[in-house]
C-alpha cells in the first residue's frame, strides 16, 4: 500500500499539470518578444548562442536559455548579448550568471566537493563492476582448475577409457 502510494506520488510529481499547480509562476510567455536583436558581428552572435546553450533556464529547468521561450530566458539572452557587446569574456558572463543563480544554472557544473560524487560516481560504479566481474571469473576458474581427480576416480576413468570397465 505504502509502495503504491510512493509510486503514485512519483508519477504525480513528474506530471507537469500537478507540478505547476502551486509552483511559483513564471511571467506569461510573450512570443512577440522572442525575436532578439542578433548581434551584427557573426562571431559575437555565435558566442551568444554558445553561451546560451551552456546555461540552464531556471523556469523550465530542462531547457537551455537559448532554447527556452520563458520570459526570464529572453531577459537572460538579452543580458548575454549586452555583456558581449560590452566586451566581457565568456568566463565573466558565466560568473555573472553563477553569482545570481548558483551552479545549478550551468549545464556543466564545476568539479568541487559537493559535485564530486556526481562527476566520479559513474566511474566508481564502473570500477566496482569490473572488480566484481574479476572476482566472479577468478572464482569460476578456480572451480574448473583446482579439482584434481582422486586415485579412485582416476582408476575409474582409465577403466572406462580402456573400454573394459563396468560401472558400479
Amino acid at each position: 500500500m505504502r509502495i503504491a502510494l510512493i509510486a503514485l506520488a512519483f508519477f504525480a510529481v513528474s506530471g507537469t499539470a500537478l507540478a505547476q499547480q502551486s509552483a511559483p509562476s513564471a511571467p506569461p510567455v510573450e512570443t512577440a518578444k522572442e525575436a532578439l536583436p542578433t548581434p551584427k558581428d557573426p562571431v559575437a552572435a555565435k558566442r551568444a548562442v554558445a553561451l546560451g546553450a551552456e546555461l540552464r533556464c531556471l523556469v523550465c529547468q530542462n531547457q537551455t536559455i537559448e532554447e527556452s521561450n520563458a520570459e526570464l530566458a529572453v531577459d537572460l539572452r538579452r543580458q548575454i548579448r549586452e555583456q558581449i557587446a560590452q566586451g566581457k569574456t565568456d568566463r565573466e558572463i558565466l560568473d555573472y550568471m553563477v553569482a545570481r543563480y548558483g551552479d545549478f544554472v550551468l549545464y556543466r557544473p564545476p568539479f568541487k566537493a559537493t559535485t564530486a560524487l556526481l562527476w566520479i560516481g559513474p566511474f566508481l560504479l564502473l570500477l566496482i563492476g569490473i572488480l566484481a566481474l574479476r572476482r566472479v571469473l577468478a572464482g569460476r576458474r578456480k572451480r574448473v582448475d583446482e579439482q584434481p581427480l582422486t586415485d579412485a576416480e582416476r582408476g575409474e576413468a582409465e577403466r572406462l577409457l580402456a573400454g573394459t570397465g563396468k560401472t558400479e
Binding site: 509552483a23 509562476s25 513564471a26 511571467p27 531556471l58 526570464l72 531577459d75 537572460l76 545570481r100 543563480y101
Partner: peptide, 14 residues
C-alpha cells in the same frame, strides 16, 4: 524590465 530581479536571482515569483 526585470533587471533588478536578475541581480537578485529571481526566477519564480513570488
Amino acid at each position: 524590465d526585470g533587471r533588478v530581479g536578475i541581480d537578485y536571482g529571481v526566477y519564480g515569483v513570488p
